[in-house]
Design a binder for these strands. Structure first.
Lengths: 143, 143
DNA sequence: ATTGCTTACCCACAATTCCCCACTAAATGC
DNA sequence: GCATTTAGTGGGGAATTGTGGGTAAGCAAT
């Protein structure tokens, strides 16, 4: 499980450290540090999948009946997907197109999301959080 | 049961002592000092769950029908959740992202809340208390 | 082939976190 | 009241994590 939130800095070359906690999860639960990073179709941020989860997503896509929406989804998600292996310092180099898509400046925010984790520009994340707070403010769980 | 209120100081490294009473409750009622600390979606403070309660919350979330509010709730609560084990002095190191969220300065206020307990910045707590007093002024319990 | 750009790999430093010990102040027992 | 325990606080130092560059290898365009 990927849990917790962390902010790291992207350097001038476009590299960011994956939070150590997440790398540990990859190694211990997946025995494989490789991740696939792709666009989130919902809002402008990126999503990182451990290999196993990525394969799962692929088969879910394959099992979905074709439609214009699915084709759009595939272009957004599959089209941009790229495999990354962290370097010896635990960093990955985010491709320029992805940086633009997610409006990434310097401060990158990582947020655990269970089987995957999200990668945001910090300012975008802050905005999203505000919006989420407003949405969830009056929300109560059933028991 | 977590009851009572306590204020402790966060040191320069971001560590705060969990009130001894709460640690005792954890050990005696839960046989497990680990807690999960996460954001409260309602106001800007944190909530600490003993492991057992955290699992309960997870299953309540899983049993709730999907909705935009639930997704927001999950982002806020599950995404930021992190497991902590107090150090030998009974302290935990609050992650920077969480400190910011709850506007934590130096004085941290702990408030028992039954099965969980809340962690506030002291000033925020004082303000909240004022607001609560105003709200509860004319309130009477039914029987 | 040469130049210029990008990426991969490596090293070095800085910052953060973890683990331990020590001190103070408050609470407890006699 | 005085000694003893316990809670909370501060800090040192080692280990881990994050950051910044340097250099060499790969590739594309000239």
């Amino acid at each position: 499980m990927f849990q917790g939130e962390f902010s790291n800095n992207m350097d001038d070359k476009g590299r960011v450290s994956i939070p150590a906690v997440f790398r540990d999860t990859l190694k211990s639960h997946h025995a494989d540090e490789r991740i696939v990073i792709t666009r989130s179709p919902h809002t402008r941020h990126l999503v990182a999948y451990p290999m196993r989860e990525w394969k799962r997503l692929q088969s879910r896509i394959a099992a979905t009946p074709p439609s214009p929406q699915l084709r759009a989804f595939k272009r957004i998600v599959l089209g941009s997907a790229q495999e990354y292996t962290p370097d010896r310092q635990g960093r990955v180099l985010i491709a320029p197109a992805m940086r633009e898509y997610a409006n990434m400046e310097r401060v990158i925010h990582f947020a655990g999301a269970g089987e995957t984790f999200e990668i945001w520009d910090r300012a975008s994340w802050d905005r999203q959080l505000e919006a989420d707070l407003a949405l969830a403010r009056d929300f109560e769980l059933g028991l």
